[in-house]
């Protein structure tokens, strides 16, 4: 591993319930300084466990990890000073106002809102009109922005964001990723997790993670390039019948709905498939060879 890596994990293991439940198994990867790195996977994959270990809130059973060169066990105090953490569950003070929450976190880290205002300005101006409102009374989108401001107020070197966009609508999700891009441009290393596969493309590198193990780790482009077979998109006016017929076809390897198309892999050639579908009464089927999405890749990796 390179020395200038900002986050390094080596063979991290963690179990719960006296060893009965494995949360993460032999996880190793590193995040470079200034990188925007995504942990992509469903609930129960182990994403939050990794965040808690890296932010020194949970001890691993085995393995080692460091953040900014500091060991997560020995140097936990230094780590807490140089990282920002936005947990998946809203964890600010409900009975403090927006401004009071922000002031509180600034004070805890020995700084002031004014001193680091530049860093949060873009985000804070959107919630500033409501700065006297208590956190408990904020909507989901506003809470999310306040939590991000509080995680940034001490100008951390590394930012940990655990599912910041879960349950958030498409428009707010796009805005949130725009904010992350601007933070990255200021040199902050960002480790972010998400269950939305389409957000993977916005990261420099990603780890696809499922049931405590990494399925693949690389740039989104390279993960897509390594998709093992040809992938086709099938469309017809009767999408539901098409899906049933494609699934019944013996030459079909896998078939999953993606919006209005069926992403399908076959054992046989295009000609044969079209003939079969015609025999089933599908006269308006289109079939196109397509570039897989990260979600296609994730599904293919789950199969193995």
């Amino acid at each position: 591993m390179k020395q200038d890596s900002s986050i390094i994990l080596t063979d991290i293991n963690k179990t719960y319930n006296k060893g009965k439940l494995t949360a993460v198994r032999d996880i190793s990867f590193s995040v470079e300084g200034g990188e925007l790195f995504g942990l992509i996977g469903p609930d129960g994959a182990g994403k939050t466990t990794l965040f808690r270990i890296l932010t020194t809130l949970l001890l691993a059973d085995g393995g080692s990890a460091s953040v900014n060169g500091f060991d997560v066990v020995k140097d936990y105090k230094q780590i807490r000073n140089c990282v920002g953490y936005m947990p998946g569950k809203f964890s600010l003070y409900q009975d403090l106002t927006i401004e009071e929450n922000l002031n509180f976190f600034a004070t805890v880290f020995g700084t002031t809102i004014e001193k680091n205002y530049d860093l949060i300005k873009d985000i804070y101006v959107q919630i500033e009109p409501f700065k006297d409102r208590r956190a408990a009374k904020l909507s989901g989108g506003m809470k999310q922005k306040l939590a991000l401001c509080c995680a940034l107020i001490h100008k951390p070197d590394v930012l940990f964001l655990d599912e910041p966009t879960t349950g958030v609508d498409v428009v707010s999700r796009k805005e949130f990723w725009e904010m992350l891009k601007r933070l990255k441009a200021q040199g902050i290393t960002i480790l972010v997790s998400t269950p939305y596969m389409d957000e993977a493309n916005l990261c420099d590198r990603i780890a696809l993670i499922q049931k405590g193990e990494i399925l693949s780790i690389d740039t989104p482009e390279k993960i897509i390039q390594s998709y093992p077979v040809k992938l086709y998109a099938l469309k017809s006016s009767n999408a539901f019948k098409l899906m049933q017929d494609v699934r019944d076809y013996t030459g079909t390897e896998t078939c999953f709905a993606f919006g209005d198309a069926l992403h399908t892999t076959f054992k046989s050639g295009e000609e044969e498939i079209l003939n079969y579908l015609k025999s089933k009464g599908h006269n308006d089927v289109s079939i196109d060879l397509i570039t897989p999405s990260i979600e296609d890749c994730f599904i293919a990796l789950l199969k193995n």
Partner: peptide, 10 residues
């Protein structure tokens, strides 16, 4: 369907 893997979601 929040939070589940893409196969389970489908």
């Amino acid at each position: 369907t929040g939070g589940v893997d893409p196969v389970t979601r489908r």
